[in-house]
Amino acid sequence: MPLSPEESTATRRGFLDWIIYSCSTILGGTIILPAVAYLWPVTKSGPVKVREEIGEAANWNIWGAKKVSVGNKPVLVIRTDKGFVAFSAVCTHLGCLVEFNPVKQNIICPCHAASFDIEGKVEGGPPPRPLAAYKVSEVQGKVFVST
């Protein structure tokens, strides 16, 4: 049942206040939202698959390693006695780049004492995950890495 004018708490001033607050919010939003969107970084969406040649297999010693950039990602490629392996060179702890240690045949991070085995699994130190592995293929003596 509708309220009579005496019972209603709505006032003309209250209604005008509501209009002013609503318009201010919309105006503020139209100013602030584009500014926030402007600050958001422009990044590519979706996975980007890249396959790149990184050198000749013949020029590569067993237990030799190379750090290369494939599709703008740092990749560590190692030639083991069983073939080539490739991992993301970004340590899963805090983003430093890992190095291959040919003496201990493991992968170490210079920042917070992490070590990974030759399969990229965490051997010691603080990393929460193994290194991401990438596919390596050898075609007509040339080595390709796919990220």
Binding site: H93, L94, H112, A113, G125, P126, P127, P128, R129
Partner: peptide
Amino acid sequence: TYQLLKYFTGPMGKILG
């Protein structure tokens, strides 16, 4: 902070540290 982060290992170590 740098030194403390080294002592927290395992899957939850990073966030715990």
